[in-house]
């Protein structure tokens, strides 16, 4: 380890905390890829009743809500659903 490394390297305690926080966000949400796929399909089902959406371009994921005052934010389900147009009745 060079002298420069010593000054620039993040302290291991801080590193552990950040790694854990990220890990626990996804573990607490308990969202396996299968569950995410189910959520996605059901969202498509519901919204398709009213709007014509781009099912290929749909993107959902679990992220952190950065707007909150808490450091790191709270977990949030983010969905981006492109709309092609309103369904004609």
């Amino acid at each position: 380890m060079s002298i420069l490394d010593k000054f620039t390297k993040k302290k291991s305690g801080e590193n552990a905390k950040q790694r854990l926080k990220l890990l626990l966000v996804s573990e607490r949400a308990d969202c396996s890829p299968e569950i995410m796929e189910k959520i996605k399909n059901e969202i498509i089902g519901v919204i398709s009743k009213y709007l014509d959406i781009d099912t290929e371009g749909l993107d959902i994921q679990i992220t952190r809500n950065e707007n909150e005052g808490v450091e790191g934010g709270s977990p949030a389900l983010y969905a981006n659903i492109p709309i092609k147009g309103q369904k004609t009745r």
Binding site: K11, S12, G13, A16, K17, L20, K21, L24, E71
Partner: peptide, 17 residues
């Protein structure tokens, strides 16, 4: 001693997580 060096998470860190 390790918490002070930044090489161990503190009680506050653990509670925060």
């Amino acid at each position: 001693d390790m918490v002070k060096r930044g090489d161990m998470m503190s009680m506050e860190d653990v509670v925060d997580i």
